[in-house]
């Protein structure tokens, strides 16, 4: 014990800790800067720029966003929440369903269909044909479907992930037994397979949810009507053009000066706070999801 304690606090160990604390600060400081800046007085920002320790705090940016321009922000929050919830649920239904079918050794089409799924990971048509297909054939522009469907709903990768989970964790004898008792395929899937797979479903749901929460590309490609702006899309617009808020916002007729320096940080804070807050509590699932490779920022 003495020796162990001694080793835990040896100079070598302390050096390793210092290096990692450096990495940790590098990961955290930008977020702290964002949060502190969003609460900083606009005059101070104009004079000293963004700082970690502002000399004067202010809630004006949040007042502007949530009171003066409430419609824009609250609507985009609602869009993001609605899209994230419905997209994640739909994905968590359809992805395991196909994964399950492919995991069944007695399913005769599994070879062909697995290749059908797998091939999309090797080759893709890229942005232009996909954009033209969604806009010219499916006419998806300025609909909620545009925020839910393209690229995010079902991924080949997660189908194959579910498939291998089922192969490893659902014993064929279990399914045989359920069939003997007269259970149909859908009954088996919903009542036996899904309840036994909650760990992977939680991990996948979290990752899919983050994918939806963070998505801005579908909004960039397919949305021009401000009614359908999600939080990230709105933030993207604001970053590109700060006067956007003044043009499209102010629907309540407020006419107060735009705190443009603080507001972008306040918007970014609003857009990342749910993830920053949830992260410590669900980190087990997050870390698992990330290590499975199922997340893209």
């Amino acid at each position: 014990m003495q020796r162990r304690l001694h080793r835990t606090f040896s100079p070598g160990q302390i050096a390793l800790h210092l290096v990692m604390i450096g990495f940790m600060l590098a990961a955290l400081v930008p977020f702290l800067l964002m949060i502190m800046s969003s609460f900083t007085d606009e005059d101070i920002l104009l004079k000293y720029g963004y700082t970690l320790f502002p000399s004067k705090f202010s809630l004006y940016a949040y007042y502007y966003l949530f009171v003066a321009d409430a419609v824009t922000i609250l609507r985009s929050y609602a869009v993001t929440l609605g899209v994230t919830a419905s997209g994640t649920m739909l994905s968590l239904l359809l992805t395991p369903m196909m994964g399950y079918a492919l995991s069944r050794k007695d399913y005769r089409k599994r070879g062909v269909l697995t290749f059908y799924i797998f091939f999309t990971m090797l080759f893709n048509g890229g942005l232009v044909p996909q954009y033209l297909m969604y806009t010219q054939i499916l006419h998806i522009k300025n609909t909620f479907a545009a925020l839910i469907v393209p690229n995010l709903l079902i991924s080949a990768f997660s189908i194959l992930l579910m498939k291998s989970y089922f192969v490893l964790n659902i014993h064929p004898a279990l399914i045989e037994a359920a069939k003997m008792d007269g259970g149909g395929e859908f009954y088996i899937f919903f009542r036996i397979v899904m309840p036994l797979s909650t760990p992977i479903l939680a991990t996948m749901g979290l990752m899919t949810g983050i994918g939806y929460w963070n998505d801005w590309m579908n909004g960039l490609y397919y949305i021009s009507n401000a009614k359908f702006f999600s939080l990230q899309v709105l933030l993207n617009r604001i970053l590109a053009n700060l006067s956007f808020l003044r043009q499209y916002g102010n629907e309540l007729g407020f006419n107060i000066p735009l705190p443009s320096t603080a507001i972008r940080m306040a918007m970014a804070t609003i857009g990342s706070v749910p993830i920053l807050v949830l992260y410590p509590f669900f980190q087990k699932y997050f870390v698992k999801g990330i290590s499975l490779g199922g997340v893209k920022g």
């Binding site: 990692m20 990495f23 990961a27 970014a268 857009g271 410590p280 997340v295």
Partner: peptide, 15 residues
Amino acid sequence: YQTTILLPQLISIII
């Protein structure tokens, strides 16, 4: 350390 340095991965590139 591990959990903290994974955090940036979860934030959208806009932010």
